[in-house]
Simulated scan of single mutants.
Amino acid sequence: MADLLILKQAEEFRKEYFHRNRQAEENRQKETQAAIRIQSWFRACKVRAYLSHLQKKAIIIQKTWRGFAARARVRQMVKAAYFTVKMNFYNEMAVRIQQRWKGFYVRKYVHNFYARKTYLEQILIKNELVRKELDEIWEAQKRENEHLEAVKQQKNKIHQAHQLHYLISTNQLPGVFNSPYRQTPHEMELLLRQVKYQVPASLAHKDTGYPRGIRDSVGVSFSGCLESEGPISTRTWDLRTRLPPIASRNTRQKTKRL
């Protein structure tokens, strides 16, 4: 009985085993698809969680870096703004100092009233000295011109005396310039007496034997005709426009009083 019962149980177990295997084979594909879907969903959740974690960490890193970079830029901007404010302050103070110094320098050395007044007075004094020197130069030049004119006139008189030497007075006959009605002889008569007779150039070759046209080396023997009244200046004067003479300060004061 026991063996029969065991056989029945084994038969039932085998049938149930095959039945369950057949059901398992029938549901294998469906269960595989379900397992795949579960696994894909789980893996997707896991990946999404990991990506979310990475995104959060990346956000933290980016936030930290951007904050650091922004704070560095702000520090640079603050430094630049402070430097600009400081330089503007220094420039303004430098401008004020330069204004004070330039004002002092101009008032003391450039537009000094008393210095300018002294300068103008010195210019007036120098102007008077220059005018005085110009007047002296003009007077000296005038005297020199008068002396040269006198010498020229004396030379002309001597030349005329050479040409009129035949009119000199003699012991027997008075000359034209020695009138008996004059108390003293004429100036030309005195000049004729002092000048020696000069042989004409046309007759010089007959007496001396020299070729015609060469004059005798013995010329005028009148020693006092070319003597100057004073020393002749060899200085060349500048022929500028002569300014009118300026009265001295004492003369102007006397004129004002009158």
Rank of each mutant, 00 (worst) to 15 (best):
D3S: 07
L5N: 05
L7T: 13
L7P: 00
Q9K: 08
Q9S: 12
A10G: 04
E11I: 07
E12R: 08
F13G: 09
R14C: 07
E16S: 03
F18Q: 11
H19C: 04
H19R: 11
H19N: 13
R20K: 13
E26Y: 07
N27M: 10
T32V: 03
Q33M: 05
A34T: 10
R37D: 08
S40P: 00
F42Y: 07
F42Q: 15
A44H: 11
C45V: 14
K46E: 10
K46M: 04
V47W: 03
L51T: 15
S52V: 11
L54A: 13
Q55T: 15
K56P: 01
K57Y: 04
A58G: 05
A58H: 13
A58S: 12
I61R: 07
I61V: 14
I61E: 05
Q62I: 13
R66C: 09
R66D: 14
G67N: 08
F68A: 06
A70Y: 09
A72H: 14
M77F: 11
V78T: 15
A81V: 13
Y82L: 13
Y82G: 08
F83H: 11
T84Y: 02
K86D: 09
M87L: 12
Y90C: 05
N91K: 09
A94H: 07
V95S: 03
Q99F: 03
R100K: 11
W101Y: 11
W101G: 02
V106Q: 06
K108P: 00
Y109P: 01
Y109V: 09
V110D: 02
E121K: 06
E121F: 02
E121Q: 10
Q122M: 06
N127H: 04
E128L: 12
E128C: 06
V130I: 13
K132F: 12
D135Q: 15
E136D: 13
K142M: 09
E144A: 07
H147F: 02
L148Q: 12
Q153T: 09
K155M: 10
I158D: 01
H159K: 09
Q160G: 11
Q160A: 12
H162Q: 02
H165P: 00
H165K: 04
Y166M: 03
L167H: 01
T170C: 01
T170R: 02
N171G: 04
L173D: 01
L173N: 02
Y181P: 00
Q183S: 13
P185A: 03
H186S: 05
E187Y: 04
E189P: 01
L191V: 08
R193K: 14
Q194G: 06
K196S: 10
Y197L: 02
Q198M: 05
P200S: 01
S202P: 01
L203K: 07
Y210Q: 09
Y210M: 07
P211V: 09
R212F: 11
G213Q: 00
G213D: 00
G213M: 00
I214T: 14
R215V: 11
R215M: 04
V218T: 05
G219T: 08
V220T: 14
F222K: 05
F222M: 06
S223E: 12
S223D: 09
C225G: 14
L226T: 15
L226N: 15
S228D: 04
E229A: 15
T236P: 01
T236I: 13
W237K: 00
D238K: 12
L239A: 07
R240V: 14
L243F: 07
I246T: 10
I246C: 01
A247N: 08
N250W: 04
K254Y: 02
K256W: 08
R257T: 12
R257C: 01
L258Y: 02
L258A: 06
